[in-house]
Design a protein around this nucleic acid. Sequence first.
RNA 1: CGGGGUGUAGCGCAGUUGGAUUAGCGCACAUGAUUUGGGAUCAUGGGGUCGGGGGUUCGAGUCCCUCCACCCCGACCA
Length: 475
Amino acid sequence: MIKNKEITSRDENFADWYTNIVQKANIIDYSSVKGFTILAPNGYALWEKFQNILDTKFKELGHQNVYMPMLIPENLLTKEKDHVEGFAPEVAWVTYGGEQKLEQKLCIRPTSETLFCEYYSKIVKSYRDLPKLYNQWCSVVRWEKETRPLLRSREFLWQEGHTIHASAEEAEKETMQMLKVYQDFFENYLAIPVLVGQKTEKEKFAGAEKTFTCEALMYNGVTLQSATSHYFGQNFSKPFDIKFLNRDNKLEYVYQTSWGITTRSMAALIMVHGDDNGLVLPPKVAPIQVVIIPIKDAPEVLSVCQKLENDLKETGICAKVDNSNQSAGFKFAENEMKGIPLRLEVGPRDLENNQITLARRDNFEKQQVSLNENVANLCKNLLEQIQQDMFNRAKKRRDEKTYVAKSMQDIKDIIEKHPGFIKAMWCGDKACEEEIKKINGTKSRCIPFCEEHIADTCVCCGKKAKHMVVWGIQY
RNA sequence: CGGGGUGUAGCGCAGUUGGAUUAGCGCACAUGAUUUGGGAUCAUGGGGUCGGGGGUUCGAGUCCCUCCACCCCGACCA
């Protein structure tokens, strides 16, 4: 366990550490246009893992994938008032087609609500057509002023689910169901504990009736909104005229939901689990789960490596021999940087004793294993153990960084000394949220489903409290 | 958009008062050899419109003007 010399320590400067890691682990690279990054092979492989897991789940629940156009005409974007006000400042426009100036400018989608709505209004006539459970995987563009790799880029990949239903109850049920899908994904695959709850009026999605969220806490105590699920009610179906005839032969507007997760979730993974040696990937989403390193370029070493790779693959583990023409030390460092959960070292010294060395990425523990044992099976169990340990460690840290504030001074002290999740009571008034935001930009993250009664009065104004809110500084 | 800063090889930098040439150094890269249990060593080699344009001068990476790009701090955001 030797600290990587080529990156800034995460305790010294977390922001530098992060930008070092994403590049050195070959997750992203910069392009020549500000805010537009290249998803490099390791980054894209990780995203494909995310896609696979979620897409399978979505389909199990009856959703279908579609693909909407990338361009939205101006008059379509502006149909829903709150929505356009939320997105207008950050859309990119296409104004020319070839040499010809366009009569109506076209916006590059910042999100596709309006496109789905237009489509739904065309295809829905009767309650028999409902529900429609569509999803799309695509990229969207938002012209951010300040950009950071994966956290805030001008183009990002995501998935947006848009469903319409014949009743409010059914749509609300869908909203909650998808929130649970995300929670399960974060906790059981990414090994990231998330706080789930409802966004306040101020923080909810532009045009939504209600917004629900999964909030994660990074190593440095900064919060990250990691996935959201919205209930739109009829807010979009009215302006977009998505009507159906119900069982009583009466025209009614549909009830709608939307839910999404972006490549930002990869940033969460990096910032929750990563350490001074690079990425640490939970086994369930690691594109390569076990790397096998031949210590010497000798035939007997290589043949053992090859056999191990085959055995592991047969057990359903994604394993790879690192054949690169580098020194052993270099390979150790390189594969640690990539976050590969488990490393098998095969060298002459081990082989003399008919054994190999096994090293965990998450806690650097090493052990010798006899080749007479079932190594593949051992790895399989160990990978499960690593997955569990990573979640427990992240949860312990999250809990340690969760505080209670009973006054504005408490909030100020916590934010300045050691940021994290801050539980505090709130009266429900937007003015108090704005007042709290003045403390280093502390925002309400959500009203958690597991509310606690901390005090009777609002932390800010002292009036009767309506909710316990979790606050924090956000990315 | 407001305040501050930086542009010299893929990356990180040096280049002193304008006179030092063919603009250097480290890392990275290429070839060869020896190596391989925590980022190997030696040898050889490739790579530059000094951010762009204009000006001053016998002479500009260096001085002046102008444009551009990027970074940091604020306001806005998945």
